[in-house]
Structures are given as structure tokens and as C-alpha cells.
Simulated scan of single mutants.
Amino acid sequence: MQPTPAEVARTLAAGHLPAVAHIACRQGPYPVRHVTDSQGRVLLLAPRNGALTTALRPSEGNDDTALVLDISDVPPVAGAPSLGRVWVAGWAVALTGEQAREAALEYADSDPAPDLLDVGDSQVLHRMEVAEVRYERNGVLVDVDPDDYALAAPDPLRTIEFDLIADLADHHVDEMAGYVRRQLGPAALPGDEPRVVRLDRYGFMVRLGDRLARLAFPRPVTDRHDLAHLLHPVLCHRCTRDSEAETIR
């Protein structure tokens, strides 16, 4: 199992990566601060008198402004493959009143930025309704159905992926290397030193020299605690064998 293009697109667009906006009939691109709400709609937070807010002001006779959000993955560690790049296109509208307050609360669920306290005063929230999603990886471009994108969930491990990989590298190198060799069998060459370089809800990717291998979890994980529970038999392999031996005795 591995993430679908819609799931990767939602993960990349979630707000933890740098993004720029290309706005219709405006010079740019514009750096943006953003998150996505529960439906995958983009929430943009910007100063009221800033360049982005000025560029997003609709032309006469319109209520919204067309734009494309451009987001590229940043691999968590050296030697890790990129998840690719996503373009999310749609129309943005400035929120006011109760809509702005509700959007600020949704924004805070992903990023409790202090500037959210100034929404309605010195800060403005725009919401972009998603009309088109395109995902590219390794030169392959995929059109993602906006409905599939909206229904997909961002990966629950993405924001802590670096911390998880660092913990495995600092404390569980031998256990993980042994597990990888057992799983890969003859495909793991004697000189290989397996190193975890990516983690997601479906499994992890390991670098072995100049090769990459993906190992799947028995089921998708839901959060860090669930991952720890799933990996316990791997990281405590000796404990598991001792327990089995005790049971046999």
C-alpha cells in the first residue's frame, strides 16, 4: 500500500511547506502563508495592506480572484526522495465577519499563528475554492479529481516525519536494519546499511546504498501513538523473541 495521488496532493497542500501563489493578471509569484481546511479548501493569511492582499483584490464586477498555489515537497533528510509538486487552482475570496472567525479557528487547528488574533483588523483571511489539482512526481503529471482531493486526508505523520526518522536513526539503527534485512531477504546485499529516509501512514522507505526500498505496514497508521504501537515488535524484536521463548518453556 502507498498513498494515492489525491492523498499526496492533500499532504503537500496542508500548509507545512513553503508555497507561492500565481495570481491572474498580477505580477508574481507571491509567497503565501496558508493551511487547508477539512474540505481541502485553502485558507490564506496575509497582512491587510500587504502585497498578497492587494493582488487578491478582485477586479471590478467580480467577487473573487483566480489563482494557482504552487507547492513543492521538501524531503525531511538527505538522501530522501521528494514527494513531488502540486498545483492547486481556484478562486479566492476575502472572508469577513462570522466566516472570518470560523476560518480563523480552522486555521488555528493546523497552525495556531498569533496573527490570527488580528484577523478582521490588520490581518485578512482568504478562502480559495479548489477547482483543479495537478500533481507531478519524477516527470509524471497527474490530474487529480477535485472531489477525490477533497475527500482525501493529509498524512498524519508528515509534520513529525523528521522527528520520527531522527529518533529511529539515533536509537533504533540495529533493530531497523535487522527488520529490513529480514523483510527483503536476498534483495538486501551483505554490504547494505539500511537507513529509513521517509515515513507515511502506509509504510516507510529505506535507502540501501544507491537503491530505495519501500516496506508497507500491515495497516495504515492514524497517529504517532499508533505508529509506536505498530513498530513495537520491530524495535523490541529481542523482547518479542524472549517472550516467545518464555511461552514455549
Rank of each mutant, 00 (worst) to 15 (best):
L95W: 11
H126N: 11
F204W: 05
A13K: 01
W87M: 14
M1A: 10
W91P: 10
D170L: 08
L189F: 01
V86F: 11
Q27G: 09
L215N: 05
L105S: 14
P220G: 03
P76C: 12
L56M: 07
D200S: 06
P218G: 10
V180G: 02
D64S: 15
V142G: 03
V8N: 00
V42R: 01
R26Q: 06
G84H: 06
W91E: 15
L43A: 07
P31S: 10
C239K: 09
L231C: 07
L17D: 01
C239A: 14
M176T: 00
L12G: 02
V234Q: 03
Y30H: 14
C25E: 10
P154V: 06
T4H: 00
E98V: 14
V77M: 08
V197A: 03
G79M: 07
F162K: 05
G28I: 01
A80K: 08
R127C: 12
A169H: 09
V124R: 08
E132H: 15
D147R: 14
S59H: 14
T96P: 10
L44C: 05
L199S: 00
E193N: 03
L45T: 04
Y30Q: 05
E132Y: 13
H126W: 15
H16P: 03
G178K: 01
G40Q: 03
T11F: 00
Q183G: 01
D148S: 09
L231H: 08
W87G: 12
L227H: 06
V86L: 10
D111Q: 15
C25P: 01
D147Q: 14
T11I: 05
L164G: 04
R33I: 06
P154N: 07
H171K: 08
D63N: 12
F162D: 04
A150I: 06
E7V: 00
R57N: 08
L44D: 03
N49D: 13
N62C: 11
D167T: 08
I23P: 02
E246I: 09
R33V: 08
A46E: 07
A92E: 12
L157W: 01
V68L: 11
L67R: 04
R224T: 08
R57Q: 14
G50T: 04
